[in-house]
Design a protein around this nucleic acid. Structure first.
Lengths: 337, 337
DNA sequence: GTGAAAGCGCTAACAG
DNA sequence: CTGTTAGCGCTTTCAC
């Protein structure tokens, strides 16, 4: 049994209030009393029971975070950002993985509030209105993060995907490419993919380029990218495209894997760029030119906002957009115009 | 203010003990009383306060986990295993990242015990005796995980690295290779690298092969692998090696990156194998043949053991070794003997 | 089957 | 400055 405040008080020969005062530095205590208390704490190896504290102060210093899968490097980056800046403000995080299951998201929201977390960050992939409603119903600060969906009216942190893909397309254009294919995946309503396509088309329109092909992969994985490779290659030849802009790095890598297997060289024969800047993108050869989705920063800003709200500071707008960055690497080659 | 057990009791017109009995199903309650309570709970949207519960039952259902860096995919796999099986037994995990800092490890151990976690899993990279002593001093179940160090006498979960590297070397031998170079990194005392070298040498000895070269990289990163590339290439030519066994996948990939940049083809010109089976290894082209370090399983078994201990089951030996698996992929070519 | 009461370890008035 | 006391929200004897 660990020592309690009572034990300390007894050993120090003072009341528990005095002990409480010294450990919290909440009210003046005579230096002799303080010394006695400190000695007793030392002697007993006393550590305050945070659970008891939480019960009375109603402050748990716990932030709940529900992710789809911590094994996803992008998600891991977000968690890293959350954890690291949370720690700066003395908050701990408790982690739940939903594996994309809507029911689990609901379950975890309940579970976390039961544990008295003071805020929740939900990193989701599919729309889950039930979860959002539940989140709202507990009136605690929350942030909703979704890499694939545009969420209006919800507190979130992201980058402007229309602008990001506009910038990337412009970069390709400036490198001399005029025939740029875009590869997307499963465009749902409100999908961020739609915004990316918008940005892509905006950039083409500016130069009055008509030749635009949009291909749709099955999904967002490397495998999906690989699988659409054949189709891409066919189009590439028929339409003489010189660059491929993939809506996801994973897809870009899958496509490059396919091209590699077919003996086609990137960027010599064809330019491939992605979106996301996942870890592999800088390790893969050739290194992938891509749009940075700043997972770490998104996590960091998210928790910072939650903490602000917990501590009563005023929050500006509910939606924050982080600056855009095109990471220029090897997979993009110049093209003679 | 969320509803409390008192509110429920009042609305239901029963005592709080009765409410407690129905939510915990701990003692028989008349069906009419039960109904009234259930209705009240429904009406008020009541959720028990787990913190208050923890205070009285002394059960937090919280497991603390201290990792070096959640951004490391291997670590993420471990956490995934921990989280997923923890969840099966209704435990939550609270995550702390030390970034390899010894002081932080200590701080987190104190912090976690303060939060009344019932067990701790420490995923570390360097030896930190102070932390281990601290962990022992709180008498709660713990597991010490270290990918780089052999830890004797400490509760841990791992694979037998001597045997693993023996098996890999044998696999290379069976593919016809007789001139195998081993690349290690910073061999400290008790380093797992030493065990791997032991396994490598054991296998060579069995076939009475004398030609063995051991190179030492600066560290365990892809960059370190790349940096030692030049040296490797030189040795390769001078000693006519046909295969490279890297003690870490990262190093293997770095080396392959270097070879790629030098126009040398794997596995056509040279065989490269690794150790770890990190995610990139199956994505990289050519796909890397390697020894699987089963992060997920290690995490899963670790928490299972902690939960067993919490719930009073007897634990067998303190050290568990998981089965070994060689993942055969593309980077290993046959060699005429 | 049910309620009253004690107490988990702590903080925060409230008197002195 | 310090001690006494009343909870925080819940579980758990202990009587009835």
């Amino acid at each position: 049994m660990p020592a309690t405040i009572k034990d300390v008080a007894k050993v120090a020969g003072v009341s528990i209030s005095t002990v409480s005062r010294v450990i919290n530095d909440s009210k003046p205590v005579s230096s002799e009393a303080r010394k006695k208390v400190l000695d007793a704490i030392e002697k007993l190896g006393y550590k305050p029971n945070e659970v008891a504290r939480t019960l009375v102060t109603k402050r748990s210093y716990l932030i709940g975070i529900i992710v789809t899968d911590i094994g996803n490097p992008y998600v891991a980056e977000i968690v890293r950002g959350i954890e690291e800046v949370g720690r700066m403000y003395d908050y701990d995080i408790i982690l739940c993985s939903s594996y994309g299951d809507r029911k689990s998201e609901l379950k975890f929201i309940n579970l976390l509030t039961g544990k008295q977390t003071e805020g929740i960050i939900l990193v989701s992939e599919k729309m889950n209105n039930e979860a959002i409603e539940l989140l709202k119903s507990y009136k605690l600060p929350y942030i909703y993060l979704n890499r694939y969906l545009n969420v209006k009216e919800l507190p979130t942190v992201s980058i402007d995907s229309v602008e990001a893909s506009y910038e990337m397309t412009k970069y390709l254009l400036e490198a001399g490419h005029r025939d740029i294919m875009y590869i997307t995946a499963s465009i749902d309503e409100n999908s961020i993919e739609k915004s990316k396509i918008e940005g892509y088309e905006n950039a083409l329109k500016e130069l009055e380029i008509e030749n635009s092909i949009i291909l749709e992969a099955e999904g967002f994985t490397i495998e999906d990218g690989y699988n659409i490779g054949e189709k891409v290659l066919k189009q590439l030849k028929e339409e003489k495209m010189s660059a491929i802009f993939c809506g996801q790095d994973e897809v870009a890598i899958g496509v490059m894997n396919y091209l590699y297997d077919q003996g086609i060289k990137v960027p010599k024969d064809i330019t491939v760029v992605g979106y996301g800047d996942i870890k592999i993108s800088s390790i893969y050869r050739p290194k992938l030119t891509t749009v940075k989705e700043p997972g770490y920063d998104i996590g960091a800003v998210s928790i910072r906002r939650i903490i602000k709200k917990i501590e009563g500071e005023e929050i500006e707008e509910p939606q924050i957009n982080l600056p855009i960055r095109i990471v220029k690497r090897e997979s993009c080659g110049k093209n003679k115009i």
